[in-house]
């Protein structure tokens, strides 16, 4: 399998997950209702997935734990997280995070 073919297969697969999840209950209608416990469990899936994706990207540098002040991305992410927590604004969060990262990169 060539890398290009694998890439497009992945796109189709990603697209299928979107269609299947969105249409799941629209197809089933009355025929299936999730138990409450399952619904509660699923509620946690996005946060767990996001945490699992974000953590290595922010905490690791070349495969090593990088917690020192030298990790500009981590510092900027902390700034962005605080702004998001306070403002709940995607726009301000992006602006703050990118500004912090740029300032650190240029002047730190």
């Amino acid at each position: 399998m060539t890398p290009t073919l694998q890439l497009w297969l992945a796109f189709v697969g990603i697209g299928l997950t979107a269609v299947v999840t969105r249409c799941s209950f629209m197809v089933l209608g009355e025929r299936l209702r999730l138990p409450l416990a399952a619904e509660h469990a699923l509620k946690h899936a996005p946060a767990a997935a996001l945490a699992a994706i974000l953590a290595p990207a922010l905490l690791l540098h070349d495969g090593r734990l990088a917690l020192a002040p030298g990790n500009f991305r981590l510092l900027a992410a902390v700034v962005a997280a605080i702004v998001m927590w306070k403002s709940r604004s995607m726009l301000w969060t992006m602006a703050a995070g990118l500004a912090a990262f740029t300032l650190l990169r240029l002047y730190a």
Binding site: L42, A45, A49
Partner: peptide
């Protein structure tokens, strides 16, 4: 890759419901 997409998209199942 597909399972990761599925996990991130799982919330759509709840919206759909």
């Amino acid at each position: 890759t597909v399972l990761t997409a599925l996990m991130v998209n799982l919330r759509f199942v709840i919206y759909s419901a």
